[in-house]
Amino acid sequence: MPAERSQPERESPRENLGARRLGRAGFLAVFGAGVATLFYGKAISRVTRNVTNPLSDATGLTRLIPSSGWRIYTVADSMPAFDQTTWRLEITGLVRRPISLSYQQLRALPRAEQVSTFHCVTGWVVPNVHWAGVRFHDLLAPAGLLPQASALHFISAEKPYDDYLDLRQVALRDVMLAYEMDGKPLRREHGAPVRVVIPEMYGYKNVKWVERIDAIPHSGTGYWEQRGYDNDAWVGRSNGY
């Protein structure tokens, strides 16, 4: 590239009068503040939320931006659609009696409710989500697990998503197959009609659009775990929350 003339001649007496290298200082200050945000973002966001939340409420942005915290992550080209008349939940594998539940049959099982915090592995958190659904003990009782079963394989209608939980994990007291969120039937983007809720683990273990639960002898490697995520996705063991 030819050297082109672009430099101003520095001959005017006014030029650079009282000049200070503020540009580099400004760059470093902004960059430094940004890097600090990486580590103290949670504390800073608690302060800025007081300003930004009323602002987005007033401008109607709340309906558009994920201000309530939820972001919608999917792996397939489109989300599964839920049809109440044809939908079935299959419970198969190491069970005495494989069963196929309709939506009404699922809703007729004992109902459990809980308020828990949802943690995504990428760092966002939704506090105080109100869930309603079925505990796995009640869900699996009609099928009857065989003694050889030690884990459950959750197969999503969103192909090829799947994940695994072992029986001790699904027996935790705040684990459920949820069909309601915040008082309303689960919305399509949240996994309608049913999703796994295991608040102690990151979101990718909370399989959405569950269509089959397979009882198996040993836990396996789920969709994201095959892509490098932790198999034991306990919240807080790794990201300091």
């Binding site: 990486l38 580590f39 973002g41 800073i44 760092g123 790794s238």
Partner: peptide
């Protein structure tokens, strides 16, 4: 990278 290696999963990354 933080999705795969928990060491680099900082609490403020999404916010920043």
């Amino acid at each position: 990278y933080g999705e795969q290696d928990t060491t680099y999963r900082l609490s403020g990354t999404v916010y920043l």
